[in-house]
Amino acid sequence: MAMTSSQGLIKIVTRKLKSPPVITITLSIIAAVLASIDSGFYVIVNTIVTGGMWALVAMGLALVFGVMNITSFVHGEFFMIGGLTAYFVFTPFSDYLMDSPNPVVAFFIPILVMLIAAVAGVVVGILSELVIFRPLRKRTSDQWVMNSFVITLGLSVLIVNGTQFIFGTDFRGIVGYWPYPTLSFFNVNISFDRVMVFILAMLILGVFWWFMSASKLGRAIRAVSQDETGARMVGININGIQTLTMALSAALAALAGACLLFMYPAYPTVGMGPLFNSWFIVILAGMGNVGGAAICAFIVALLQVLTTVYFGEGWEFTIPAAVIILVLIIKPSGIFGSSVRGILDQ
């Protein structure tokens, strides 16, 4: 008996080791280590720092797809709105701090700014759900996925050009949130902002994880994503959950936009890059797989860092896109697989 159970265990372990997520993660870690031996430790540092942010953006996208079946194209615009809000809130504060320096306030203001940006995201998310997605849902049932996709496209065009109409095409960026000197890890210089932003991203990731797995609302969201009819039967308010999901997803994107304002100055079409990235991530992870998206964010970040290191600037969309297309030839449902109903059945 003991023999068979240990053999069974070995079988399970080897099967786990052969599973696509483990293989991909191992390969990525090997690639990261080799690349950092070859061209310096900053490869890993850059990957981890940018990966943390893409994880936030991509998780929101995966969530909206999983719960509402919306293939959102407007996610980049939520990112842009976050950045824009952060800019307009932060600049008066930083001007004020110039006149009367105060270290405590200077430390906490950026965090406050990011929270305000997240609130802006919540507002925009709720508005777009109420004004656009709900009326559409009432009128479309059969071809919801394609129709909602097209309508997010329209919304994206509207927001981008509306912003351009109101604010113009100026780049609204900041040099940095925290006026502290650059830190140095293993001979790699990394700005304090990046470290802080990474810590914040991990913190938010943790809170989000807790929210989705332990809290009642998070469970309701997952229930809706698994089985909408079943969720309705046990008395979950579907409309409320859908509004909440949209708000949450937009808030995550806006938060990321605010956090990365020092890297991505806010201008109307800034959302394009984050949108591409988060789509790469979501497709690679398996559409609607929120946990997988968080891990794949780092893989895509690595892919992009490696591309910039070995191919130079300007290739950062082409080569990851090609790699992802290749991966999908082998495994169309994504590395982590998709649990969303009806992705592959048609």
Partner: peptide, 24 residues
């Protein structure tokens, strides 16, 4: 590559391919 999957997959993949070609 994509048309054996659900339609949205083809839409998004065609978009990726267009990004790749655009980059090229």
């Amino acid at each position: 590559l994509t048309l054996r999957l659900r339609g949205i997959f083809a839409a998004v993949m065609a978009w990726f391919i267009s990004l790749a070609i655009w980059g090229l």
